[in-house]
Design a protein around this nucleic acid. Structure first.
Length: 420
RNA sequence: GUGGGUGUAGUUCAGCUGGAAGAGCGCCAGAUUGUGGCUCUGGAUGUCGUGGGUUCAAAUCCCAUCACUCACCCCA
């Protein structure tokens, strides 16, 4: 029989990995609560329309990477390719705009799907943690969102990360900027790659992102967003930087950050690692003051980020961060003979009911094999139950680490481990 | 969608210009019949990814195909 594999670009999270996820998820919850954010869980599927309007129908994500299908009712449904649109939809649908502002929301168990060709740090299904702070124009809110991310990295023991920030301006300054870009690149059109030539008219900002050497060279001296910001945007960006400096968060202004989703306005940022392969962006986000209105709400500002869990774990592994050890069994109750095995079975259930993790032999193995198994489980203590112990009513409890033994009465076993 | 790399034991891999399929780790058994880890001794395990071609002879050379992987594009 041929084995069926997981679909291309997807990955199982097996026991040796899942405890890492639990650890990170716990830290995320803690940090988010400290920052006053509350969790929102939204469906994995949404109406395709949401992403057409939210992410932008000229973006690569929408044009070629979405998992879209018709359901049995003929509705066009899409597996979410990013987290923000769904959160904003839920915010509007549940009228969270009636709650105190800013609404600080986060999402954590968020499988995200994009039909891409997989490589290191890039999957067709990945998981995102993200934060969306809705309702405040203040640069302090931008800074706080960034600081939340940076604090989390620090808490997780991650160093070696670069924070890159930029401002791509509001629609007003974007207009002037795009015109300046167009004029500039027009002069080099013949030397640029095919895609960049079409970008000239559709979205000249994307040319700055191009990795083709000639385009990169030309883009080096292209006009920068920061030079075309209107006074409000300029002041706002300065405000963000002041807040970061006031809290000692190091950053680098990187005019090359443009971001591939249409909804961004003003502040954009990325947190980047240089040791997890070519896909180094662990966290990316920014301000999106137009999105909520675009999705049918009132005009409300917002700022947020998405963080790739798989990349986060990759960074931690490359940073040699110590994950806590996976939980192990406290006591393994080995047994020989029918009566003792039955007693061991009952004993284990009783220990568990008292909050002590315990295990027994499910497979009628020899005593030796049982102890080997106990050892592999990482069992802290073992005890052997046989006819002798049953008649005596006491067992010897052995500490697997140092081999010491202690005699304990059978009916006081739970208390014994409780004390430990 | 475009390009590079890799598919050999459960696993990580070695196998030079074609000539009897190997090692480490793991697994099983024994030394030790009621005690795991450590040590020693012995043992089992292969459609050499799949299909075709060249050849007296293919894991090795050629073609195709699939899978995995890395990079481009884009992004977390």
């Amino acid at each position: 029989m041929q084995q069926i594999q997981a679909p291309k670009g997807t990955k199982d999270i097996i026991p040796s990995e899942s405890h890492k996820w639990h650890y990170i998820e716990d830290e995320i919850r803690k940090q988010c609560e400290l920052f006053g954010a509350s969790e929102v869980r939204t469906p994995i599927i949404e109406h395709t329309e949401l992403f057409l309007r939210g992410v932008g129908d000229t973006t690569d994500i929408v044009q070629k990477e979405m998992y879209t299908f018709l359901d049995k009712g003929g509705r066009s449904i899409t597996l979410k390719p990013e987290g923000t649109a769904g959160i904003v939809r839920a915010f509007l649908e549940n009228r969270l705009f009636n709650e105190p502002m800013p609404q600080k929301l986060y999402y954590l168990y968020s499988p995200t799907f994009r039909y891409e060709k997989p490589q290191a740090g890039r999957y067709r299904e990945h998981h995102q943690f993200g934060v969306e702070f809705i309702g405040s124009y203040s640069p302090k809110t931008d800074a706080e969102v960034i600081i939340l991310a940076m604090t989390l990295f620090k808490k997780l023991g991650i160093t070696q990360l670069g924070l890159h920030i930029n401002s791509i301006g509001c629609p007003v300054c974007r207009k002037a900027y795009n015109a300046a870009l167009h004029d500039y690149f027009m002069g080099y059109a013949d030397d640029m790659c095919q895609t960049c030539r079409t970008r000239l008219d559709t979205n000249p900002m994307r040319i700055i992102d191009c990795k083709v050497p000639q385009c990169k060279e030309i883009a080096k001296h292209a006009p920068r967003t920061v030079d075309y910001l209107c006074d409000d945007c300029k002041e706002h960006f300065e405000g963000v930087k002041r807040c970061l400096e006031a809290t000692g968060v190091e950053y680098k202004v990187d005019p090359d950050i443009v971001r591939g989703l249409d909804y961004y306005t003003g502040t954009v940022f990325e947190v980047v690692s240089d040791r997890i392969g070519a896909q180094g962006t662990v966290c990316g986000g920014g301000r999106y003051n137009g999105l909520i209105e675009e999705l049918g709400g009132q005009s409300l500002p917002a700022v947020g980020f998405g963080m790739g869990m798989e990349r986060l774990i990759a960074v931690m592994e490359n940073n040699e961060v110590n994950f806590p050890a996976p939980p192990s069994v406290t006591v393994y109750v080995a047994a020989m003979g029918e009566a003792a095995r039955l007693k061991a079975f009952a004993l284990v259930q009783e220990l568990r009911s008292k909050g002590i993790s315990a295990e027994f032999d499910h497979m009628d193995r020899s005593l030796k094999a049982q102890l080997k198994y106990a050892n592999k489980l990482g069992s802290v203590y073992t005890t052997v139950l046989g006819d002798d112990e049953l008649t005596a009513g006491s067992v010897r409890v052995k500490c697997m680490a140092d081999g010491t033994e202690e005699a304990v009465e059978l009916d006081r076993l739970a208390d014994y481990f409780d004390m430990k």
